[in-house]
Each structure stands twice: as structure tokens, then as C-alpha cells.
Simulated scan of single mutants.
Amino acid sequence: MESIMNLFNQYGYIILTILLTLELIAFPLPGETIMTYCGYIVHQQKMSWILSIIMASLGGIIGITISHFIGKMLGRTFFEKYGHYIHLDTAKLNKISKWFERYGLWLIFVCYFIPGVRHIMGYFSGIVKVPFKKFMVSAYLGAFIWTGTFISLGKFLGKNWSLYHSLISKHLIFILLILLAIILISTMIYYFKYRLKKVQN
């Protein structure tokens, strides 16, 4: 991690984009730690908060898009034979297939917050041939929220970014799901109020 931090301190935004691209292609990199550290640098006012989120999101988007097209091009048979090299063997494919049947495109959206799943979700979505427009909406929005969450977390924690990172990241998926539920309920209430007002008028 120290060598990654040294690279980050030298190249900033560019290395942030490259590292997150590589992680979403399934390289074993600590993306959440990198982003939280980036937030700490933002806290020190050495980097821009908005630009950091944009560049980090770009890295995630590039990585998951590349893996999506690789999955689509090579197909399930290839990954059943060679997928164990990126932890995407037959057992993992079957497991994610069941999750995908249950949660659909929401799984692509939240996969970034699930260690061991975000690295292979792009490949899986390509293997099952998720339409690119639908994939793009879920994956790209998810990338923005994922990067924004951890960079903002590092910015908020400041010099304590490393002390609380592991604890918070364990529970972040549950926090995210609660927030999504609140947003969904609020949207539904707003929609029904709007429809009711139109009917009354």
C-alpha cells in the first residue's frame, strides 16, 4: 500500500483513474482504501474534491465497461474454463446468477460496495448479455456513488482516515441500502402526490 500511496502522491488524479480502472478489471488493488486516502489528501486541500470524484468515477466506469465487453465477447464457456484466474469460476457464476435473478440491475448498481463482487460484475453482466444501455445506467451511476462515498468519507475523517476505514466499510453496504430505500420511498411518495394533484385539478 505504501508504494501505491507514493505513486498517488506523485501523479494524483491520473494514478487514481488508472488504479480504479485496473481494480474493476479484477486486479487485486485496495480501491476503497485508495479513495479514502484520496479524501484525506482532499482534506489537506492538495486535491479538488469534485475533480477527484470525477476522475475516480471515470476509472471505475472504464474498468467495468472493459470487463463487460470482455465478458460479452468471450462468453460463459471461456470463464467456466479459465475464470478461476480472476475468481470467477463456475460456482461463483452460478451464485451471482441467482443473485441477479433476484435483484436484477440493482445488483450491478450496489456491486461496488460488495468486496469480491465488484471485480467480476462487469464480466458477468457481459456474459449474461445485459443490454448495454441498461448496464450503463446502473454501472455508471453506481461508480459515481461508490467513489463519491469513499472520497467524501476520507475528506470527512481527515487524519483519522485509516483508523475508522475498515470498521465503516464493513457496514457501508447496509447504510447504502437504507439510504436507497429512503430515496425510493420518497420518490414514490412524491410521484403519488403529483399524480393525485393532477387528478384533483
Score class of each variant (00 low, 15 high):
residue 33 T to S: 11
residue 33 T to R: 02
residue 33 T to A: 15
residue 34 I to Y: 02
residue 34 I to A: 02
residue 34 I to F: 02
residue 34 I to D: 03
residue 35 M to N: 02
residue 35 M to K: 01
residue 36 T to Q: 00
residue 36 T to R: 01
residue 37 Y to D: 03
residue 37 Y to G: 01
residue 37 Y to C: 01
residue 37 Y to H: 01
residue 37 Y to A: 01
residue 37 Y to W: 02
residue 37 Y to S: 01
residue 37 Y to L: 01
residue 37 Y to V: 07
residue 38 C to R: 00
residue 38 C to H: 00
residue 38 C to P: 00
residue 39 G to E: 02
residue 39 G to F: 02
residue 40 Y to Q: 01
residue 40 Y to L: 02
residue 40 Y to M: 01
residue 40 Y to H: 01
residue 41 I to F: 00
residue 41 I to D: 00
residue 41 I to A: 00
residue 41 I to M: 05
residue 41 I to V: 12
residue 42 V to Q: 06
residue 42 V to E: 03
residue 42 V to N: 04
residue 42 V to R: 06
residue 43 H to P: 03
residue 43 H to S: 13
residue 44 Q to S: 06
residue 44 Q to P: 01
residue 44 Q to W: 00
residue 45 Q to Y: 07
residue 45 Q to S: 08
residue 46 K to E: 12
residue 46 K to Y: 00
residue 46 K to M: 07
residue 47 M to Y: 06
residue 47 M to T: 02
residue 49 W to I: 12
residue 49 W to F: 15
residue 49 W to L: 15
residue 49 W to K: 05
residue 49 W to R: 02
residue 50 I to F: 14
residue 50 I to K: 07
residue 51 L to E: 10
residue 51 L to Y: 14
residue 51 L to H: 08
residue 52 S to Y: 09
residue 52 S to P: 08
residue 52 S to K: 09
residue 53 I to C: 09
residue 53 I to Y: 08
residue 53 I to V: 15
residue 54 I to H: 10
residue 54 I to S: 07
residue 54 I to D: 11
residue 54 I to F: 15
residue 55 M to K: 02
residue 56 A to M: 10
residue 57 S to P: 13
residue 57 S to A: 13
residue 57 S to I: 10
residue 57 S to D: 11
residue 58 L to K: 04
residue 59 G to H: 06
residue 59 G to F: 08
residue 59 G to I: 14
residue 60 G to S: 11
residue 60 G to I: 04
residue 60 G to C: 14
residue 60 G to E: 08
residue 61 I to G: 10
residue 62 I to H: 06
residue 62 I to Q: 05
residue 63 G to D: 13
residue 63 G to T: 10
residue 64 I to D: 13
residue 64 I to M: 07
residue 64 I to K: 02
residue 64 I to W: 05
residue 65 T to C: 07
residue 65 T to D: 04
residue 65 T to K: 04
residue 66 I to T: 08
residue 66 I to Q: 05
residue 66 I to K: 03
residue 67 S to Y: 08
residue 67 S to P: 11
residue 68 H to R: 13
residue 68 H to L: 15
residue 68 H to E: 10
residue 69 F to R: 03
residue 69 F to C: 07
residue 69 F to L: 09
residue 69 F to I: 07
residue 70 I to A: 10
residue 70 I to S: 09
residue 71 G to K: 04
residue 71 G to A: 13
residue 71 G to Q: 05
residue 71 G to L: 12
residue 72 K to R: 15
residue 72 K to F: 09
residue 73 M to Q: 14
residue 73 M to L: 14
residue 73 M to A: 14
residue 74 L to I: 08
residue 74 L to W: 06
residue 74 L to T: 11
residue 75 G to F: 12
residue 75 G to E: 07
residue 76 R to L: 15
residue 76 R to W: 03
residue 77 T to D: 15
residue 77 T to W: 00
residue 77 T to E: 15
residue 77 T to I: 09
residue 78 F to Q: 06
residue 78 F to R: 03
residue 78 F to P: 08
residue 79 F to V: 09
residue 79 F to H: 03
residue 79 F to I: 09
residue 79 F to C: 08
residue 80 E to A: 00
residue 80 E to F: 03
residue 80 E to K: 13
residue 81 K to M: 11
residue 81 K to N: 14
residue 81 K to C: 03
residue 82 Y to Q: 12
residue 82 Y to C: 06
residue 82 Y to S: 09
residue 82 Y to R: 13
residue 83 G to I: 13
residue 83 G to A: 07
residue 83 G to H: 07
